[in-house]
Nucleic acid binder design. Sequence first.
DNA 1: ATGGACATGTAAGCCGTTACATGATTTG
DNA 2: CAAATCATGTAACGGCTTACATGTCCAT
Lengths: 181, 181
Amino acid sequence: MALEHAILVSLAERSATGYELARRFDASIGNFWKASHQQIYKVLGRMDADDLVTSQVVAQDGRPDKKVYAITDAGRAELARFTTEPSTMEPLRSAFAVKLRALQHGDRDAILADVHRKRAQHAEKLAYYEASAERFYPDPDALEAADVGPWLVLRGGMLGEQTAISWCDEILDRLEGRASR
Amino acid sequence: MALEHAILVSLAERSATGYELARRFDASIGNFWKASHQQIYKVLGRMDADDLVTSQVVAQDGRPDKKVYAITDAGRAELARFTTEPSTMEPLRSAFAVKLRALQHGDRDAILADVHRKRAQHAEKLAYYEASAERFYPDPDALEAADVGPWLVLRGGMLGEQTAISWCDEILDRLEGRASR
DNA sequence: ATGGACATGTAAGCCGTTACATGATTTG
DNA sequence: CAAATCATGTAACGGCTTACATGTCCAT
């Protein structure tokens, strides 16, 4: 299961509570691995039992206690081991492709509207990635060692979004008969 | 659940047995929606109960009987309804991105080797898509109506593979310090 | 006072994978 | 004679989602 490893990466960067992890999974890490807070609490419990992380209860005034999780040496070892594992070809599951393939069996106008919406969503995400790049890595040719991995992941996200936009444009060109852009 | 709809699309194109569907999910449809034969049999059973498909047992000599599934009117209606549904932004889950993000916490050489392998896999898949395009749609500017959807899906696959290859190249350029290509 | 952020969970159920099971025919 | 293909399933298990549950503080 890779959720464990996504959590380990996040905790290796900084210790956090389950709640904080859940928010990271809504933002940075979550751009390429989604997880709900329920799922995260469950897996954190197991990882604690397996000694991949340790937890420490911290009292706060005016707020509920929180459990701060930190990665252990065993957790770091597991993370390192994970990086030596050959990654399996990730099978894509695209409901959008299923829908597009159903073009002649469905509602063409609805599908076109969906393509427009999808394009807008990808454009928004691309803008978000570009803003992140600008903000966190203003000089990509002079990155610190710790930033190289995250930067390359962000680049992957940008390339993916650009491609998704291009695909939408191709679909619209074909189905709405526009001039080339 | 979109597996139902992927099956409906496939059966709308042609009636088939569970076994044949499983093979289609290893090839054409499976390029963008994976499913095992066990899963397919299970879902087909439910879809039969829900009247989205009908089944007819066909005796064969020298071979086990087979159950041929065909889409029903209710199935076609459900497929059409599905195309009017706005598709949700598909959250990507990339173990590769997790690994890449773990670059400084893991084995750099192993990760590089993995990038090389990943690049080769995507190149192979791209070649396969290009061969399919050449074979089934030699003249993309003069497609039959029934081929437009499948063609656009295939284009999406090609764009995706090209992008994956570009991403791998960017990673290798950065980590192995190669000249620009 | 209403809603949002903080903070942590349990429970039910579906989806999907892996392993197991069976049995005939064709091909090398 | 062994392996692949044809053909259809069951069982066990784990991952993940959705819904439910609880309680405080702060801002409007």
